[in-house]
Design a binder for these strands. Structure first.
Lengths: 162, 162
DNA sequence: ATTAAATAATTGACTAAGTCAACTAATGAG
DNA sequence: CTCATTAGTTGACTTAGTCAATTATTTAAT
């Protein structure tokens, strides 16, 4: 297969997958979070996030609940730091996240509150439910095939461009 | 493979692919078009678009260059009609698209102008170039494997949810 | 330890994207 | 022909996201 044809193949796939993801986005629309907020929420849920050294001043001085690790998160999600800031602010305002003193060096860490964790669980449940609907009709063999194909795509594209 | 595991697999893939598409979006950022505009442009380029019966008034009465087919396009791209309207307005203002009387029934049709077509060609060239960079390191065999995997994903997911 | 240079965080003002609801025009049925 | 229905269109508004200027924080040099 010539590479030019593959490029068109990928474009076709992009159109398809964009549409599919659009459907899933509607799940998020139901929730009280924007797409960006949901992504941040997922990301915060993934791991506790020690801020690698630098920490917000206000957080320390005035015990504000808002924190750093902004740039790390921003990089992973490719959101502008300024915008991420607003999301984190909103989260702390909603009581979903807060600064806590970290266990070891006392460095503040931004983590989800219990309420934040609950919100995350809800959101994951909703998206899982919708994803499950996408694949409900697949037999075991087809499910395995899909999984395999997704892994292939990832492996082949990850190897390449990034 | 249990379906629950597959759901997680898909989520992982979503994260990966979203990041990848993010890279491609930067191509568009370079261009003078927004993401939505680019999508509309691609879509307009795909086929001439006979407006299935109904046609904008102003377009007829005052020979404004702006047209209908709004809802059809809006559906395919899942953009709100009102927003699509603005994009089309902008395009006609930029001289990229215009209303012409259709060949058969004289019904107005929204089409790209020469300048619009040129813009589309440029944009496609840019995105193709960036896509090509993604796969440049793949050998022929791997390219074929990727193409195959993309088709499998499409087939298996299209069969399912939509 | 002090301070200067460099980098990260934070904010407010601004721009652009997208939605909503009201309004206008076109169509089709009686 | 006219009325009901549907689509197209617009302006006002809300929310998302960016930018540039400011303020903290760190690092390294003295």
């Amino acid at each position: 297969m010539p590479h030019e044809a593959l490029v068109h193949e990928i474009r076709r796939f992009n159109r398809f997958y964009t549409g599919l993801v659009g459907l899933l986005d509607e799940t998020l629309m139901q929730s009280p979070y924007t797409l960006a907020e949901a992504r941040v929420l997922f990301e915060l849920g993934r791991k506790p996030r020690p801020s690698d050294g630098r920490v917000g001043l206000l957080a320390r001085m005035f015990h504000l609940d808002l924190a750093s690790a902004a740039s790390e998160l921003a990089g992973e999600l490719s959101l502008a730091p300024a915008y991420l800031m607003r999301v984190l602010r909103k989260f702390t305002a909603m009581g979903l996240a807060e600064m806590r003193d970290g266990p070891e060096n006392g460095q503040p860490v931004l983590i989800l509150t219990e309420r934040g964790k609950a919100a995350l669980v809800d959101l994951e449940a909703a998206t899982n439910r919708d994803l499950a609907r996408l694949i409900v009709k697949l037999g075991d063999k087809e499910a395995a095939e899909l999984s395999d194909a997704l892994n292939r795509v990832t492996r082949l594209l990850a190897a390449a461009g990034m």
